[in-house]
Structure formats: structure tokens, C-alpha cells
Design a protein around this nucleic acid. Structure first.
Lengths: 334, 334
DNA sequence: GAGCCAACACGAAACGTTTCGTCAATATCG
DNA sequence: CGATATTGACGAAACGTTTCGTGTTGGCTC
């Protein structure tokens, strides 16, 4: 690989001049600029970012940490994030941790020791003393996405879950549903709590009592939803609609219903958050809240780079991305 | 961040000694080793990989380039690859290019200028003078996955597509299907060609002629499949089964059939490659070839690291990963 | 006891940049 | 026209490592 020295030799100027021309950090005469650029071309020179970063004491790499890259949400986020970052000359390392807080902390350490400039984290948000430990581990700027931590020192970008849940609930109410099952996730995880809150508030607003026996908590894995659904649907008075707050719940719910021979939406309506609908073409397509992942990624990238560059200082920012309801086939009028 | 200098100061030894103890590259007395490790602990020292790599003239980062990270195949590959690499102390940059060869070449350049140690590429494999241009751009070790390039100088890991297609075809034949539609992808893309080859050979082996009017070519996007299916199913003698060679085709096919009001498998059977089945719980689940992505990732990582370290030299290797047929509900007995 | 060799410790150079300080030449001002 | 900026160019130091070569010590062999 050609170095700046080679360029200097070819252009018959000093190393300093080459650097100044390339970076525009100091005035260089027309003539020498011409010679330098020609030499750069001839040598096929690209600056070595390792050396640049070492000297400047910075890095142009940011780390993305998600619970599971194989979920559609994370995959889309990664894609959008990579685009957003590469536009600004940054590149991205990433890691997936199976929603295990211990692994997550190790990944943060790993990335830190690799001197990333900043981190984007879809935090696992559970485990003992989670916030303290996370806070201790992170020594670079960081932006949380999706799951936020109340009172943390980090910027965050997340969906307007309260509004989203209200949209979902009002839609079901409009269709005539009263006996609505709601699957809550792990307690303390912000999207889960907020979505449940939105559900409650929309129900209250309509003056309809929430049937506590149809609220299932700690449903955060596919098989939890699978069995929760079995129990819900065998009640004396089963729900007419089931709200899933994430894709794992949706997959489990659909599998559970299919297993019991129940059809959607004829026997029960299903509605979901986490805009991913497995696929058009399968019956039934799922009415769900659409998430604007591209915006989330862009906002998070912007926030992070602003912190890195020092453009943005002070109090942590919280950005809410607006959801919209995408009506498909999985809910019926009562 | 503490440097090696700080450690040396605390331990009251030379920088050289610290480096020697940490890396075990030169004999150091018990006593000094003890002091050094204590100092490392006290300072909370982590070596700066930037400086290490600069000095050693190497890097511990590899780049992963895929057509679309948002496809389940790529997402799972990325996950498995990241795990495989981080076990060996490497980390991973990645990029997604929307199956655009020009973007792909730019990404290769970008990664090269960032001095990655090697590349793992699920090549787009099309475009003018593709192989020459790719070959020119890549100056590091590289391993191709999924799509391979005949006669290229790169190692490759891919599924045994011939065998896979034979498994699929024999299964359909066993169920009594004779009028089988086959959707071919872009010509020249190895998995597509190989899969079609396997189909032909299995049909020949059974002595059943391939109905050329049911073979649709250049079907590589979801909407291509959507319209191909419409045309296929309105023929005088429509197929009783449709073979999709990738997930885009499968999605398009299912959407097309649904759009026409046709049911799977009652009206027509569907079988797919690319083991991803959108979701259990939706009707119908799709009988498909399962791919062993974890193995693919591991083999590719191993190959690449062996090339990087120089353990492996000489002729390019080609590794075939064995597929298996996963029977679900989308094919019926005739 | 002279001569060697291994073990141990270290200073200094090198990796490829950016940047500080210096210096000469030219332009600007009163 | 002399003093003072300004422009343009450069040498050398620095970023944090690894590694080469040198030197000192002590133990071993004959």
C-alpha cells in the first residue's frame, strides 16, 4: 500500500505539504496542489485510517449493539444505520447478544477497547443493577434505541409507544371489541410498559374496564405467547381480540392459535406492534402498527455524531418517532 | 485512557518489559511479571488496537458484504459470522448494497481503504465484466459465500445446490407431481443455475420431460414472481406445483396466488429453497430446503482467517454445505 | 579463573499520519 | 522605505504500540 511518503516523493514536495493539500488544513500553492493530486492519483494513495485515528486520538467507527440481529426490526435498523453512518464517513461494528445483559456488557467493553467513537444500543434493559452497570461500562457517547432507560444519562430514540397503543386500542374498540387480551412483556422494559399504559389509557378514555384476567404478563418469548394464548382461549369468556406488542409474541400467538385450530380473524382478532408482517401472501396478513425504522436510525445516528463532535452538549435528548396504524386482515368487526 | 506508559510507570519497569509480559514474546522474571500484571489491573489498561495494528501492519477487522442485510438469510449469516469471528478475536464491519454491483464495488473499495484484513462477500455476481472488476478491486484475502464465481481466484462456501434441487424435485415426483413450474433467477448467478440444473437432472433421472412452458426465467424480484405466477396459473394446463429458488420468489408467488384466490396446497403446491419459512402459525407453512447457515459462516470464517494468517495457501477452495429437506404443509399428494 | 551462553532488562527506532514551530519570501501598511 | 503581516513550505515531534539490537548479570564448562 502506498503511503503519504510515496506521494511526497513522486510530487517532489514534503510530507507536510501533501497532508495540507489533502486535508486543506493549510494554504498550499496552486502549482503544488496540482502536483500532489497527480501524485495521489498515480500512486493510488488512500490515507491509512489506522494512522489517522491514532494520531488524532479519535476513531470513525461506531458500534451497534442489538439483542438479536436476526429479528426483522434489528436487521432493518442495522441496514438503515449503516447507510446513515456511511454517508457521514463513519463505519459500523456490530454485535448481537441474545438479549443477555451479561453478553451485552462484554460487548460494550469489547467495543470500547477497540476505541469506537460511540455506541448505538438497543439495550436489553434487564438484569441486576442494570442501569448502573450500563452507565459504568459506557465511556463513549451513546444513544439508546427502542428501549429507553428512565433517568439515564443517554440520549434516546424510540417510538411513541403511548400513542401507538392508543391507536391500536381505539381501532379495536371501533370494531366493537370489548374483551381484549393484552400481552405484556418483561416488566421494566420501556416499550412494554408504555404500550400497556397506552392501552389502559385508551380503554379508560372510552369508559371500558380492562379485563385483568385477559392481561398476561412476562410474555417475552415466543413460547410464552404460545402457552398464554392456549390459556386465554380456553377461558369461559375468551377474548375477541389479542394485542401482541412485539414480533415474538405475534409469532407465538399465531402458532398457538393454529395449534388449537382457531382461525384469524374469524375466531379471534389479532393485532400487533412491531410493523413486521411476516409476508404478504400468507393468510391472514396482520393489522399492525408500522414503525419508521429509517427515521429512528437517522435520528439516532445524528444524535450520536453530534455528541461525538461536541456539537451537542448538555441534557440527554429523547426523540419520539411517530407510528401509524396499517390495517390489514387480521381484525374483524364484531 | 491509560497507555502502556502508565503501566510501566506504575510497575516501575520499562515499556518493553510491559509489552513482553503481556504478549509473552520475551522472557520476563516472575517478580516483574507480577508487578506488571498488578499495574495493568490498577490502571485498567487495555492495549490500543489502533496502535497495535499500525505497528504490526495488520488489522483484526474483516468486512462482510451482502446484497441485503434485511433478508433473513443475510441477517442470520451476519449473526453467525459475527460470532465466529469474535471467537477468534476479530471484529466485523458490514455493508449492504441492494444487489447493486456498482455499490458493491464502492463498498469493497471503502473497506479496503479502511484496511480490513479480509472480506466475506455474498457477491451480486452480475453486471458488466463483473468478475474482472471484482478481481481487480479486491486486494485482500476474500471468501465468497452463496453465489460463487466460476474460475475466480477466491475461496468459496456455498450450498450443494445441485443436491438440494434434486431432493426437492424427487420429493415432488414422489407426491405424484408431473407438471412442475420452476422459477429461474438471473442467469449466470450460480445458485440459480445450479438449482435449475439439479431440477433438470432429477427430472431426467425419473424419465419425466421438463415442460419448458412452465419454466420462467429472469425471475429475481418479488414482483417478477408475482406476475409469473399469474401467467402460469392461467395456462390451459397449469402446473400442479411451483418451485421457488429463493425467498423473494416465494413471497411473490404466495402473494400472486393469494391475489388470484388460489389456495396452497389445495389448488397448487409450493416448495422453496432458502430455508426461511416466514413464520409458523401462518397458513400454510412452506415445505422447503433448510440451509445450514451457521456452518456456512463458520467455514467461511475459517477459510478467510487461514488465508489471512497464511496457514492456507495455493489453489482456491470450494466448500459445499449439505442441505436437507424440511417437509411442512405446502405440498400435497396428487 | 577465563571464556561462553542464556536469561533478563531496556533504549530507541519504526509503523503512517497530523500538527506545531520555524523560516524564507512576498505583500501590506503608515 | 522600514516595519509588520501573510503566505507557503518544511522539519521534527507526537500518537501507542512492537521489535531490534545492545548491554548487564549470573551460571556453567573446561
Amino acid at each position: 500500500m502506498p503511503t503519504i511518503k510515496d506521494v511526497a516523493r513522486i510530487a517532489k514536495v514534503s510530507i507536510t505539504t501533501v497532508s495540507a493539500t489533502i486535508n486543506g488544513t493549510a494554504p498550499v500553492s496552486e502549482e503544488l496542489q496540482r502536483r500532489v493530486w497527480a501524485a495521489v492519483e498515480e500512486a493510488g494513495y488512500h490515507p491509512n485510517p489506522l494512522a489517522q485515528n491514532l494520531r488524532k486520538g479519535i476513531s470513525t467507527t461506531v458500534g451497534l449493539i442489538v439483542p438479536d440481529i436476526a429479528t426483522p426490526w434489528a436487521a432493518h435498523l442495522a441496514k438503515a444505520m449503516q447507510t446513515a453512518l456511511s454517508e457521514r464517513g463513519y463505519n459500523m461494528l456490530f454485535a448481537s447478544n441474545e438479549d443477555d445483559p451479561e453478553r451485552e456488557l462484554r460487548e460494550i467493553d469489547l467495543f470500547s477497547s477497540h476505541r469506537v467513537a460511540g455506541l448505538i444500543i438497543a439495550a436489553t434493559s434487564h438484569g441486576e443493577r442494570y442501569m448502573e452497570r450500563l452507565s459504568e461500562s459506557i465511556r463513549t457517547p451513546a444513544v439508546l434505541v427502542d428501549r429507553i432507560l428512565e433517568g439515564s444519562r443517554f440520549d434516546a430514540v424510540t417510538d411513541d409507544n403511548l400513542l401507538g397503543a392508543q391507536l391500536v386500542t381505539r381501532y379495536l374498540l371501533k370494531l366493537g371489541h370489548r374483551d381484549i387480551a393484552f400481552l405484556v412483556g418483561r416488566p421494566g422494559i420501556s416499550p412494554s410498559d408504555e404500550r400497556f399504559g397506552g392501552f389502559q389509557s385508551a380503554m379508560a378514555e372510552a369508559g371500558i374496564p380492562v379485563r385483568e384476567d385477559l392481561v398476561r404478563r412476562e410474555v417475552y418469548k415466543q413460547d410464552h405467547a404460545f402457552s398464554a394464548v392456549q390459556q386465554l382461549m380456553t377461558r369461559a369468556s375468551p377474548p375477541t381480540a389479542i394485542v401482541c406488542i412485539n414480533i415474538a409474541q405475534l409469532l407465538g400467538t399465531m402458532a398457538g392459535l393454529k395449534n388449537m385450530g382457531l382461525r384469524v380473524p374469524q375466531d379471534v382478532s389479532v393485532i400487533s406492534f412491531d410493523g413486521f408482517h411476516p409476508a404478504e401472501g400468507w393468510a391472514p396478513s396482520i393489522t399492525s402498527l408500522s414503525q419508521d425504522i429509517a427515521t429512528t436510525a437517522k435520528q439516532a445516528a445524528e444524535l450520536l455524531l453530534a455528541r461525538i463532535s461536541g456539537t451537542l452538549v448538555g441534557e440527554p435528548r429523547l426523540i419520539r418517532v411517530q407510528p401509524g396504524l396499517k390495517v390489514r386482515e387480521s381484525c374483524r368487526q364484531i
